[in-house]
Design a protein around this nucleic acid. Structure first.
Lengths: 224, 224
DNA sequence: TGTACATCAGTGAACGCGCGTTCACTGATGTAC
DNA sequence: TGTACATCAGTGAACGCGCGTTCACTGATGTAC
């Protein structure tokens, strides 16, 4: 399990029971964020669900904001670890660009769907406050993209443009942006609704078509 | 100039001077939203900039939220009007899908750039509160898309898929989502930075490639 | 094995701050005769 | 043209509510001798 950096905490847990309390607070908040915005969650809501007192909360976390940072760290550590596994360079030898892109998008959809509530809050937070740390963490996720870029560049013979790097980047960004919108906010903003698998398929095709890489992915016949 | 629906107001302005006060409040808030979030704006900030008192504010608007709704209405009325002009069906006779798509995306980029602050706030709002009206207004913008869809369907001979409607929809949504991210939040979330013109060009190409419509748009040689 | 002491952990009532909102009052505008 | 009255518009100090945070206190755990 991921460790939380000390700067967020009043004091790192010294005993098992306080470790347990802290985890219960983190878990409770994570669940509640599936239902409510962070701002609409009171400390009381959280500690009630966690089964401890307000004082216990402040025994662990400097303030309410620190809780969110802790959740952020916990999620991103897992995210990066899983992502690096998916993108381990060697395992993709001999595979096509299509395979790689699809795997990355599948990973993103899975990870974002699983922690939808938390990620909604975090992405709102990065936009609301100018807390550099949230933005930094969001940028950190882009380092993952570096590996994807490497893999695609190795296959740039398939890409009929003089500057493959720029289309690889812009294409990924476009696809990533809309993937995030589809998964995190797709239900609120109207428009077409496709299943997660269809979204992955279509975004893969969008990316490959844009890169100029031939593929045989067929669009769905109807929406869900 | 757009009228604000009465439901937001304590009373519609009866005299010129109150009309003026109201406009000054709206204008002041619009400017301030370019610098701050709505939540970080106090009524005092707004009335100070508008040059009136707190009481004058509440003489016009039911509450703080009503101000945002009024701004929303004012913006969207203009947006829809301009958008319908761009998409007037007749004027596109004989023009290619590429011309149409590019014009629509240019319009979106221009409109969103001009009111970046307000639109940031509105899109956050639609996600934060579950105020159905913001979401409804956001959906309303999709009606514009209906016209684009018509125009593209007329040209579906160019689209080599059995179900052109679904790719037209999904493609537009993807392109629109990422356009909005690029314009409203592009500076915060890292990644590549292209000029607005380049974004329009690339997104046009992404859309056309995805639709399977041949085009000769060339990617940029370098980012800005 | 027992005792004394330090530190950790947890409790929950009370505090306090910020900001949206109210309200008693003054002044401006319009209208009827 | 003047007067009386109703309504509109605007003022800004004071209020009040919600919720994050504090703090005085109790209990648990660990350690030294």
């Amino acid at each position: 399990l991921a460790e939380i950096s000390d700067t967020q905490l009043v004091q790192p847990p010294q005993q098992q029971r306080s470790r347990k309390t802290m985890d219960q607070i983190l878990d409770a908040a994570e669940v509640l964020l599936g239902e409510k915005n962070f701002d609409d969650l009171s400390i009381n809501d959280i500690v009630e669900k966690a089964g401890c007192s307000v004082g216990a909360f402040y025994g662990r976390f400097r303030d309410k904001e620190a809780l969110l940072h802790a959740l952020d760290e916990r999620y991103f550590a897992d995210f990066i670890a899983e992502g690096e596994q998916v993108l381990t360079l060697s395992q993709w030898d001999g595979k096509s660009a299509e395979d790689i892109v699809r795997a990355v998008l599948e990973f993103l959809v899975t990870s974002y769907s699983r922690q939808r509530g938390l990620l909604r809050t975090l992405s709102l937070r990065a936009r609301l406050r100018d807390d550099a740390r949230f933005q930094a963490r969001e940028r950190q996720a882009w380092t993952l993209f570096q590996k994807l870029q490497e893999l695609l560049l190795e296959r740039s013979a398939e890409i009929p443009y003089s500057n493959p790097e720029i289309v690889i980047k812009f294409g990924f960004q476009t696809v990533f942006y809309s993937l995030r919108e589809f998964i995190l906010w797709g239900d609120m903003i109207g428009g077409i609704s496709l299943s997660p698998e269809q979204v992955v398929s279509e975004l893969t095709r969008i990316y490959l078509d844009y890169l100029g890489v031939p593929n045989e992915i067929q669009p769905p016949n109807r929406a869900v």
